[in-house]
């Protein structure tokens, strides 16, 4: 009998922070998402081209070398239209918000300020994919 369960939304998470426990990734999995992890921008773009995710989550963190602006530029200018249009959720420090110029970002890009409540994170991710809790 074919599996009638709907496909789980696929998220690519670009995260080079040094915490061994993946709080955000694990919460996404527990909420029913499939999560593929990349530890650098280069790896993330390669994975995104191959997997065609429903959503990309980037942990913008200057110390670990993942710069959301760099990701945004690469994703936006990608030759593959599907990647260029993939929703992007950026988790950024307050110190980086000004640089991100949040009010100029396209609708498909959302920014959440770290530290954040996991509940807000999941709600935003679901909202971006039009998944509603009933």
């Amino acid at each position: 009998m074919p599996d009638s369960a709907p496909p789980r939304p696929l998220v690519i998470k670009v995260d080079a922070t040094h915490y061994p426990m993946d709080v955000f990734g694990d919460r996404l999995i527990s909420e029913g998402f499939q999560v593929v992890k990349a530890s650098s921008i280069k790896e993330g773009i390669k994975l995104a081209r191959r997997c065609k995710p429903d959503l990309v989550v980037t942990i913008d963190d200057a110390d670990s070398g993942v710069d959301a602006i760099e990701w945004l530029e690469l994703q936006h200018s990608d030759n593959e239209a599907s990647l260029a249009m993939t929703p992007l959720l950026i988790l950024a420090d307050i110190s980086r918000l000004e640089r991100l110029r949040v009010h100029e970002l396209p609708d498909r890009v959302k920014v959440l300020q770290r530290p954040l409540e996991l509940r807000d994170f999941i709600q935003t991710a679901k909202h971006m994919l039009a998944i509603w809790d009933l």
Partner: peptide, 17 residues
């Protein structure tokens, strides 16, 4: 939040998930 965050000089805090 659920990750450690620096609040002041020498002081970090975290509310574990």
């Amino acid at each position: 939040g659920p990750e450690p965050i620096q609040l002041y000089d020498n002081l970090w805090a975290q509310e574990v998930d």
